[in-house]
Amino acid sequence: MNGLYSLKPWYADRLAGLRAGCAARGVSPDTLTWAGVACGAAAGAALAFLPAPLAALPVAVLLAARLGFANLDGALARDTGRTTRRGAVLNELGDRAADLAMLAGFLAVAPLWLVATAALAATLPSWLALAGAAAGAPRRNGGPLGKTERCLLAVIAAASGWYAPVLGVVAVGSVVTAGVRLHWIWRELGR
């Protein structure tokens, strides 16, 4: 059950030319991480300041770019031999910051408690995957509601104005995804 995460290899192949261009120009993987954070924040600003459905196109474009940068940073580091432990930490922090910045845009259109609940729940799958990896399990990504699905849901909210229902789906789906990952990690560590 990998959700849209199963498309990552296909998406990475589509970005190969852009990745090669970044490598040829000496672009730092960390720069791409920060660009992803900026795109997440800009998508949050579009959610906050543009009404539905006018927010849909900018949110979609910015979140597509955010996902592209999230894919490119690590791949560029591997392709150019610039993987570092600090880069790995920055990558994880950048992913969480981009998600939280995007979700912060909902503060203008939904109750604080609901946005906070969705934001906390959205971080759980990643923290579980990192905890499992720290304990010796392979890194587990994907699930019913991961990063890509959260971005898609934000676009749906921006297009429809269904802010509260989307945040509810993000919260519940993220908890379910965390449960799926925990179950898998627990099994792996018990072997």
Rank of each mutant, 00 (worst) to 15 (best):
residue 1 M to C: 12
residue 5 Y to Q: 02
residue 7 L to M: 12
residue 7 L to E: 12
residue 8 K to R: 14
residue 9 P to N: 10
residue 11 Y to S: 11
residue 18 L to E: 05
residue 18 L to H: 06
residue 18 L to F: 15
residue 19 R to D: 03
residue 19 R to V: 11
residue 21 G to S: 07
residue 21 G to K: 06
residue 22 C to D: 07
residue 24 A to W: 10
residue 24 A to L: 13
residue 24 A to F: 13
residue 26 G to H: 09
residue 26 G to P: 10
residue 26 G to I: 09
residue 27 V to E: 03
residue 27 V to Q: 09
residue 28 S to P: 00
residue 29 P to D: 07
residue 31 T to L: 15
residue 33 T to I: 01
residue 33 T to C: 04
residue 34 W to S: 11
residue 35 A to W: 09
residue 35 A to V: 15
residue 35 A to C: 15
residue 38 A to P: 06
residue 38 A to I: 04
residue 38 A to T: 11
residue 40 G to H: 08
residue 41 A to W: 08
residue 45 A to E: 10
residue 46 A to P: 06
residue 46 A to M: 11
residue 49 F to K: 04
residue 49 F to G: 13
residue 49 F to L: 09
residue 50 L to C: 14
residue 56 A to F: 04
residue 58 P to N: 10
residue 60 A to V: 04
residue 61 V to H: 01
residue 62 L to P: 01
residue 64 A to F: 01
residue 65 A to F: 14
residue 66 R to I: 04
residue 68 G to W: 14
residue 68 G to S: 13
residue 68 G to F: 12
residue 69 F to V: 02
residue 69 F to R: 04
residue 71 N to D: 12
residue 72 L to R: 02
residue 74 G to R: 00
residue 74 G to W: 00
residue 74 G to F: 04
residue 74 G to T: 01
residue 78 R to Y: 09
residue 80 T to Q: 03
residue 82 R to V: 11
residue 83 T to G: 00
residue 83 T to L: 03
residue 85 R to H: 02
residue 86 R to S: 12
residue 88 A to N: 07
residue 89 V to Y: 13
residue 89 V to A: 14
residue 90 L to V: 11
residue 90 L to G: 00
residue 91 N to V: 11
residue 92 E to C: 04
residue 93 L to G: 13
residue 95 D to T: 14
residue 95 D to Q: 12
residue 97 A to T: 14
residue 97 A to H: 14
residue 98 A to Y: 01
residue 99 D to P: 10
residue 100 L to A: 14
residue 101 A to L: 14
residue 101 A to Q: 13
residue 103 L to C: 08
residue 105 G to S: 03
residue 106 F to Y: 13
residue 106 F to V: 12
residue 106 F to A: 11
residue 108 A to M: 11
residue 111 P to L: 05
residue 112 L to A: 15
residue 114 L to E: 05
residue 117 T to R: 00
residue 117 T to Q: 03
residue 118 A to P: 05
residue 118 A to Q: 10
residue 121 A to E: 09
residue 121 A to S: 12
residue 123 T to S: 12
residue 123 T to E: 03
residue 124 L to I: 07
residue 126 S to I: 03
residue 127 W to T: 09
residue 127 W to E: 06
residue 128 L to Q: 02
residue 129 A to T: 08
residue 129 A to E: 11
residue 129 A to M: 04
residue 131 A to I: 07
residue 133 A to C: 02
residue 133 A to W: 01
residue 133 A to P: 02
residue 135 A to C: 06
residue 135 A to T: 02
residue 136 G to F: 06
residue 137 A to Q: 02
residue 139 R to S: 08
residue 143 G to D: 10
residue 143 G to M: 06
residue 146 G to M: 03
residue 147 K to E: 15
residue 148 T to K: 13
residue 150 R to L: 05
residue 150 R to K: 08
residue 150 R to A: 08
residue 154 A to V: 02
residue 155 V to M: 01
residue 155 V to I: 00
residue 157 A to V: 07
residue 159 A to F: 01
residue 161 G to P: 10
residue 164 A to M: 04
residue 164 A to K: 03
residue 165 P to E: 06
residue 165 P to F: 02
residue 167 L to W: 05
residue 167 L to Y: 03
residue 167 L to I: 06
residue 169 V to P: 08
residue 170 V to W: 01
residue 170 V to C: 05
residue 170 V to D: 03
residue 171 A to E: 03
residue 171 A to M: 10
residue 172 V to N: 11
residue 174 S to K: 07
residue 179 G to Y: 02
residue 180 V to Y: 11
residue 182 L to E: 00
residue 182 L to Q: 07
residue 182 L to Y: 08
residue 185 I to L: 05
residue 186 W to F: 14
residue 186 W to I: 13
residue 190 G to Y: 07
